[in-house]
């Protein structure tokens, strides 16, 4: 019996190296115990995987799938992957077989990881932690992903935020990008990030882009599940928006049409005369003054 511990950081490479070694040494799946760090080691187990020897040809589709599945939360992910890889030796066409139940399971896991990565790209919210005037500004975010998706998704943030430093802290792992170089360290508890004035503006935007006449709470929740809300600043506005929407929509419908403002006639006349080009700004500022 072999006993392999796949580390948290660099799991994809570690699993691939180990799996290549086992495959080259013809070790069947039931003789390997794949473990995450921290699990109790098994007695009498050989902890050394055989070194990978020679070239192993595996379809590109499987490699792509494995590179996602290794980040799944499922504790048996490494064993499942190796089990399928073992079957591929005699049946290489299996990777394209959508009817195979074990592949279907792996595909589902792959999809879960992709979705989690996608949601991470969408829902991470940075706060500024450095001087906004500094040549490289710095930002930090606290995020709680469903799967171990920080590592495979960090490169996306590096490609996107090339001219700033950032860190994404999760309970499981921390990604830090300084001067364009990404590194990973252990997870941390939720940090106290400084208040960010732009969050207030963002919430104001969120509240006002919402159309109360089209309330569809379930559509929102299916795309932005509630488990993410606690780390989304804009989510604090949701309960009140939902509560007041029917009343606001009804009020719009009930309101009697109003008389057009005075400037409307003037502007229409000017437009009709075709000299709309010479500054209508005075009438705009007077409209502003009326309201104040």
């Amino acid at each position: 019996m072999y006993h392999v511990v796949i580390p948290k950081i660099g799991a994809a490479t570690a699993w691939r190296t180990a799996a290549r070694g086992f495959l080259a040494a013809q070790v069947p799946p039931h003789e390997i115990c794949w473990q995450e760090p921290g699990a109790a080691p098994e007695l009498f187990a050989r902890t050394q995987a055989p070194p990978p020897t020679g070239d192993i040809k595996v379809s590109r589709r499987f490699v792509a799938m494995a590179n996602s599945v290794v980040w799944h939360r499922d504790r048996d992910r490494f064993a499942r992957l190796y089990g399928f890889l073992w079957r591929l030796r005699d049946a290489p066409h299996l990777t394209g077989d959508h009817g195979d139940s074990r592949l279907a399971r792996l595909r589902r896991m792959e999809k879960n990881v992709h979705r989690c990565q996608h949601k991470m790209k969408a829902f991470v919210r940075f706060r500024e932690i450095g001087d906004p005037e500094a040549p490289r500004r710095s930002f930090a975010a606290w995020f709680e992903p469903t799967h171990h998706t920080v590592e495979p998704t960090a490169s996306f943030f590096a490609r996107r935020f090339g001219d700033m430093d950032w860190r994404i802290i999760t309970p499981d792992k921390t990604a830090i990008c300084v001067d364009g170089v990404v590194s990973f360290s252990a997870g941390q508890p939720r940090p106290d990030l400084p208040e960010d004035a732009h969050e207030d503006l963002w919430i104001a935007y969120f509240e006002n882009i919402f159309n109360p006449a089209r309330l569809k709470v379930s559509a929102m929740c299916s795309e932005m599940p509630k488990k993410y809300w606690k780390n989304l600043p804009e989510a604090v506005a949701i309960p009140n928006l939902v509560k007041t929407a029917p009343e606001r929509a009804e009020k719009m419908a009930r309101a009697a049409p109003t008389l057009p403002p005075l400037r409307a006639e003037r502007m229409k006349e000017r437009l009709a005369q075709g000299n709309a080009t010479d500054g209508t700004l005075p009438s705009q500022s007077s409209a502003l003054r009326q309201r104040k």
């Binding site: 490609r159 996107r160 001219d163 159309n211 569809k216 559509a219 929102m220």
Partner: peptide, 20 residues
């Protein structure tokens, strides 16, 4: 490192309003 932003083909929806 000389600019800000990326575009990778597929769009990203960063939030959903209660109108879905």
């Amino acid at each position: 490192g000389n600019g800000l932003g990326s575009n990778e083909g597929s769009g990203i929806c960063h939030a959903y309003a209660p109108d879905g």
